[in-house]
Design a protein around this nucleic acid. Structure first.
Length: 271
DNA sequence: AACGCGCCCTGTCCGC
DNA sequence: TGCGGACAGGGCGCGT
């Protein structure tokens, strides 16, 4: 579900309410959501810690606990929800973090592809180093992307979704960025020309920035920390628009399958 | 070593 | 109405 704009929206929404709160009690209702240690060890380790800040790396939410971090990956259908402890419990509730001041942070996930885990500072450095460049950072440049694509034979759309190369771009925004750049998603990465890489840098930055401004894309399940959907879905130009007219030329948008995921594009506008 | 594929899981929708 | 199959914002681990 959530790509960079959705996670960024959630992180911005959680940062204020969670800053300075202590974790008082942890309930794990779905132990398979906890990675790296048994669920009871996870639940026992957190109480007494305080949340210093909430940030994002790639599609992950990170809570700085001082000396260690709590990381959350939402998978396809995960939600991080702020609630009062007496609010009705939804089905598929996975983890409850009871915080100081009568606030609760809930992790909710029907498909349970998401996960939560703790990371030491040392582990965090390794983990962070294995991830690719943040596309909204100054390091996301044409030379850097050019250097990355030129040795890869995979289709550019698949390449763009590889989190070891560029982070945060998932199935929706990969199609959208390539449409904006006018590049066919099937093109081998190393066949891109430098001017096309420049358009791609621009396309990725632009679509992610606009999507954040609209609080993300709700396709099916995505909700922010207050349970609200994002508004960017109606601004998508190709994703989930198979057969509908291209917004630029009117030709029907095509759907193909790449790496077992749907790709959408306009074969008139994208080469 | 890069790459492709199957799989993890539940819910929904569509065609028959 | 029921049922099977396809499909859904992700990511890991396997084999080649």
């Amino acid at each position: 579900m959530p790509e960079l704009p959705e996670v960024e929206t959630i992180v911005r929404g959680l940062a204020g309410p969670l800053a300075g709160r202590a974790i008082e009690r942890v309930e794990v209702l779905r132990p398979d959501l906890i990675d790296g240690e048994p669920a009871d060890a996870f639940a026992a380790a957190l109480p007494g810690r305080a949340i210093r800040s909430v940030t994002r790396r790639a599609k992950n939410t990170l809570m700085d606990l001082g000396g260690e971090r709590l990381a959350v990956n939402l998978g396809m259908t995960g939600r991080l929800l702020l609630a009062r402890p007496d609010e009705a419990l939804p089905t598929h509730l996975g983890v409850r973090l009871h915080l100081s001041g009568g606030l609760e942070l809930r992790y909710h996930d029907p498909r349970r592809f998401g996960r939560l885990w703790r990371m030491s500072d040392e582990r965090w450095r390794e983990w962070d180093a294995a991830l690719g460049v943040e596309p909204l950072s100054p390091e996301f440049t044409v030379p850097r992307l050019w250097d990355g694509v030129k040795r890869s034979r995979v289709a550019i759309k698949t390449w763009l979704m590889d989190q070891r190369k560029v982070v945060g771009v998932g199935n929706i925004y990969a199609s959208e960025a390539l449409f904006r750049a006018g590049i066919d998603p099937r093109r081998p990465a190393r066949r891109l020309r430098r001017y096309e890489v420049a358009r791609l840098v621009d396309g990725v930055r632009t679509v992610l920035t606009e999507a954040i401004e609209h609080r993300g894309t709700t396709f099916l399940d995505y909700r922010d920390e207050s349970g609200q959907p994002g508004a960017f879905a109606r601004r998508l130009k190709v994703y989930d628009r198979e057969g509908a007219p291209c917004t630029a030329c009117g030709a029907p948008v095509r759907r193909i399958v790449q790496a077992n995921r749907s790709s959408f594009f306009c074969d008139v506008c994208q080469h």
